[in-house]
């Protein structure tokens, strides 16, 4: 990427380099502007939901077609986890880089991304009911009984219940009704939901799935950095 510029060596003004810098700045600005727009975020949130349709109807992947609903079930849960980790990363990004436009742009969409995570989790649970029950309603009672009996499934349901409460109280009216402080405290439950979701995903397979680490690992690192910034002796005095 870096090429030796004879002008730079001779100490003359390096116009090509400056141009690259300007272009890079321009790109970041473009990205920032894009991320500010709701329609862009909506598209990014809907696309993962369409991925299984592509595999089933266009690519006709035989591995997916063996049990399409199973793929859909896992994919919806996976997407819910990714979105939950993503939305929780927005705040530490803003705290760590308060002047970074991209972080600021992303923080405009916390509600939207959070609600989308709930929507995927709810679809995941619906897929679970159909997956376990098939078309035979006589399985329904068994499914619910199992869900309470198996810690793996129970944790998933508790996570969904938390996300449901957070989604309902994401309306502006709820903030007024609860008061800002109570609302903020309630919405800290999102961290509990993330921890439970990570656990639910970690034990979903026969062996530990590494994807849990790359979904939730960056969030943990960001939160650690945020805490470090918060508690470390602040030189500039601009602590939060």
């Amino acid at each position: 990427m870096e090429r030796v510029d004879p002008n730079a060596l001779s100490g003359l003004p390096s116009t090509p380099n400056q141009r690259v810098e300007v272009n890079a700045l321009h790109l970041v600005q473009r990205l920032e502007n894009l991320l500010r727009r709701k329609v862009v975020i909506w598209t990014l949130l809907v696309l993962p939901g369409l991925w299984p349709l592509w595999l089933i109807f266009v690519a006709k992947s035989p591995s997916v077609l063996a049990d399409p609903l199973k793929y859909v079930l896992h994919h919806l849960g996976f997407t819910a986890c990714v979105l939950l980790a993503t939305v929780l990363a927005f705040t530490p990004l803003r705290v760590l880089w308060p002047k970074w436009g991209v972080a600021l742009a992303l923080n405009r969409h916390r509600r939207l991304v959070g609600v989308a995570s709930f929507a995927y989790a709810a679809l995941h649970f619906t897929a679970h009911l159909v997956y376990e029950g098939g078309t035979d309603a006589s399985f329904l009672l068994e499914i619910l009984r199992n869900s309470v009996k198996k810690p793996f499934q129970l944790v998933g349901m508790i996570t969904l219940a938390i996300l449901l409460v957070l989604a309902i109280t994401s309306l502006n009216a709820a903030i007024k009704w609860l008061g800002a402080k109570a609302w903020k405290n309630l919405h800290r439950l999102a961290y509990l939901a993330a921890a439970l979701a990570a656990y639910h995903q970690a034990i979903a397979r026969k062996t530990f799935p590494l994807q849990v680490v790359w979904i939730f690992g960056p969030l943990v690192l960001l939160e650690l950095a945020r805490m470090w910034k918060h508690f470390a002796p602040e030189k500039s005095g601009a602590g939060t």
Binding site: K70, E132, K150, F152
Partner: peptide, 22 residues
């Protein structure tokens, strides 16, 4: 005799088509 994380009482039929069958 259940698996600790899921029931063994029933099973998904692979290639069941559509939403599949159990």
């Amino acid at each position: 005799v259940d698996h600790p994380r899921w029931s063994q009482a029933s099973e998904r039929v692979i290639g069941g088509g559509g939403l599949g069958s159990r």
